[in-house]
Design a protein around this nucleic acid. Structure first.
Lengths: 199, 199
DNA sequence: TGTACATCAGTGAACGCGCGTTCACTGATGTAC
DNA sequence: TGTACATCAGTGAACGCGCGTTCACTGATGTAC
């Protein structure tokens, strides 16, 4: 079996996606990991440390996902615009393939429960989102050089739109109980980018 | 002074926007309303009834806001496309004028804490979002009739995009501590619609 | 005009439960000499 | 090869606090006759 720490993180991730961080008790995590409540505190000094570890792990995974996806897209087509359009399609497919809710929810939960967490965790969240803004902004700059946009456009806001549309889509998906919203929203963003840059 | 029930709802709304529903205690609401904890339960049978009343009130307000905004826009320009573009600009301005966080947060909180609430509240949330989808879808249908869209487009997903972009923008705004994100995101959506329909 | 009763809008003490956290202790494994 | 000690990965009982909720009671206002 995997080491207990990883097991705890896996269990917590699933529980948080299902019902949020505060509603997930240490008792329940410990039971699922088949250790006692006391045993849990051997691995994490308190509940905040658990949240931090979870978010750190999620951000690392998400960064790797974006790296892979857009590198793969770039291999398929060397043009910056077409690579991004392919990448967004791959992203939409990936979002659809995540049956138990995309871990993006974890960022959103943290944003909505930030009173529970300490400053370090809020900074983590913040840096992750700024990182994604910069990542996509860089792509858009490269594209804009080759394909002058049809209208003047705020590239930071456009870079944010990836995160914004995924997170917003997740909220609708949860509220509606209707899967596939984030993927559909990403495809809308893709159409927007196509209209904005392609001739 | 306003009646106590309304005072309680106002206090709760502000507190929920600041830190979420679960983190807002009845003790604290009662203290701010200058009544005892027991007195609170004279007005609301339990905490769930408070949540329901808050969300009902929010949805009604939001519906009225959309009614007003797009009616005003339609008065300024009778063309369906241009009316919508004006309406979105007005919406962006309204979002920027809400200093203490837009109550949209309340829908998002409810989506992220839905384990806390009963089925009735989840249905309320669901119906509200479906209502907004239908509202914007109707506008897009009217527009598409006059201005054939440049690409095939899923009008339901496009209708959802208003909610999705506002909610997603709110998450970024909170996580970044950077005001103005929802408005900027709405302006991006506006550009998309312009490129999609206008010649 | 006075009396009896009902309703409204609370008070404030008490209860019980769940939850995060602490702490003394334990058995298994690893390391030094 | 055996002994002593340290570290790892826990156990399980106990503590205390906050929170939602209940309940008997109360003073002010309204209504019937």
């Amino acid at each position: 079996m995997a080491d207990t720490r990883t097991t705890i993180l896996d269990i917590t991730e699933a529980a948080v996606l299902e019902k949020g961080f505060e509603a997930t008790s240490i008792e329940e995590i410990a039971a699922a990991a088949e250790i006692s409540r006391g045993g849990f505190f051997y691995h994490f000094k308190d509940k905040n440390a658990l949240a931090r570890a979870l978010i750190e792990r999620y951000i690392a995974t998400e960064d790797r996902l974006y790296d892979d996806l857009f590198a793969r897209a770039r291999e398929l087509n060397d043009d910056p615009l077409h690579a991004l359009l392919i990448g967004l399609k791959l992203l939409a497919e990936t979002l659809d393939d995540m049956p138990n809710g995309h871990p993006g929810c974890i960022i959103a939960s943290a944003a909505y429960q930030d009173r529970l967490f300490d400053r370090g965790i809020r900074d983590l969240n913040r840096q992750a989102i700024l990182g994604w803004r910069a990542r996509f902004r860089a792509m858009f700059e490269q594209i804009a050089e080759k394909y002058p946009p049809k209208t003047k456009v705020d590239l930071d806001a456009l870079g944010d739109m990836v995160s914004s549309v995924v997170e917003g889509g997740l909220i609708l998906e949860r509220a509606l109980g209707e899967p596939g919203v984030p993927a559909a929203q990403i495809m809308q963003l893709r159409t927007y980018i196509k209209l904005l840059f392609a001739d």
